[in-house]
Amino acid sequence: MVDVVYAVLVAPFKDMAGSPAFLVEVLIGGVFAGLMYSLVALGFVLIFKASGVFNFAQGVMVLFAALTLVGLLERGVPVVLALALTTAVMVALAFAIERFVLRPLVNQEHIILFMATIGLNFFLEGFGEMLWGANVKKLDIGIPDRSFVVRGVQINELELTAAVTAALLVTLLAMFFQKTRIGRALRAVADDHEAALSIGIPLKTIWVVVWSVAGVVAIVAGLMWGAKSGVQFSLSLIALKALPVLILGGFESVPGAIVGGLIIGIGEKVGEVYWGPLVGGAIENWFAYVLALAFLLARPQGLFGEKIIERV
């Protein structure tokens, strides 16, 4: 009994204190993984905020963006041009989604819009593979996947770039939502479609904007994940990891998506390394979901979720 308590509560911390450089490495790994989850979760948050729709197709949008980018690069298009073209494709996709999926379903129940995004999910999956093929591709954007050492801590250059990019993107988005006219309109639409319409906010424009932004976020996420682990179908499954992030951070909160992602990223890496051996490993695979479950029980709106305002 005492042994178990010691192994769970004392030994891991002794290990941490024993080699701080290694701990820092684990933490950095966690931050990186967390930011990657955040990037995917952000796409969900944006669309959920502006239309109350849970976009089931966000994961596939990441895959589709990455596939398009790789496909263009393989055909010898220079990196900058390929990025611009991919952005154009994602914006065009946003227009198409508004026109053919959302517009006919204005003022329908959220569940119906959700179902529509499931359809969109299958469509994009098939369409992407039809265009670009289904085999695993390597995404090379010119950032070397090598490490350098600072005070005994290994830092991966690619991971560092990804982290900085993610942080930048998130700051920009938060400012966009809080400070700009369109950002304010987006939040207004999220609160009350009809009222937003009544004061002249055009839903069409708002939806195109928000799906375009979500598309751009998908490009960044696809870029980073693709550079790390290749562009393949399983990329669309990272959306599953974004779910617990959303539950943790709150579905409507941009900062929540970031903090939620970081908590889950760091939590699962630290858990895996220090506590993993006790239970035979694989903590990484379930940690996020168990945490999400606990949150659903204790604080269903998430850490930063908008409180459900009820008047009595």
Partner: peptide
Amino acid sequence: RHVFEHLTVEENLLTGAYT
């Protein structure tokens, strides 16, 4: 009424100037 509940009073007013 249909105010935007999660926006502040001032933000609500500002959305009115969207057009």
